[in-house]
């Protein structure tokens, strides 16, 4: 997540900056988006839109926060806008099947067990309600501290700490004895 930028961004540098951001963080943003929308094709579309949006909003980057924080914020807002949109509320996609399908694919015994453990955890996290999935993802996948999360999500740090706690309880309930 380390990336610093000059405060003044010249017009002709904009494309180069976006190229740079895409090369360094494209896949990370795609994963982040997927954690919100749980659909691969949709995540790809939204990620592209996020970079186009970033290009047009480069001037709003003021240099005080890290460039990545700025980018993450745009990405998260874009995901949330999508989740709130009419299209998303009216049109449902079935992602669940895809998760189920990959569950069977394994060869050796160890791989099967590891695969099972991975799937169980990933599945449980992806099944969490949006606001809990968000904090678990940012904290344990993106390694953001609660302080950084508060900055990116524009929420009170204590609210997020409570959410994290609650999310862990939910996961524990779901995963039960396999801890």
């Amino acid at each position: 997540m380390e990336h610093s930028m000059n405060t003044s961004i010249e017009h002709e540098n904009k494309e180069a900056i976006i190229q740079d951001l895409m090369e360094n963080y494209g896949t990370a943003i795609l994963h982040l988006v997927y954690s919100y929308v749980k659909d691969a094709a949709l995540a790809e579309d939204l990620t592209q839109e996020i970079f186009v949006k970033s290009y047009h909003h480069l001037h709003t980057y003021n240099g005080t926060s890290k460039m990545t924080t700025w980018l993450w914020r745009i990405a998260i807002n874009h995901c949330k806008d999508h989740l709130k949109s009419w299209y998303n509320r009216k049109v449902t996609v079935s992602e669940q099947e895809q998760l189920e399908q990959t569950k069977d694919a394994s060869t050796t015994e160890d791989a099967v067990i590891q695969n099972h453990i991975d799937h169980e955890l990933a599945g449980a996290v992806m099944d969490l309600p949006d606001k809990y999935r968000e904090v678990i993802y940012l904290h344990y996948y993106e390694d953001l501290s609660t302080r950084e999360m508060a900055d990116v999500l524009k929420k009170n740090e204590n609210t997020l700490k409570t959410r994290l706690k609650r999310a862990r309880v939910l996961l524990k309930q779901r995963l039960g004895g396999t801890l």
């Binding site: 994963h31 954690s35 998760l99 990959t102 590891q114 695969n115 453990i117 991975d118 799937h119 955890l121 990933a122 599945g123 996290v125 678990i136 344990y140 996948y141």
Partner: peptide
Amino acid sequence: LKQALNHT
């Protein structure tokens, strides 16, 4: 979680 999500 990182490993789990990356693998799945």
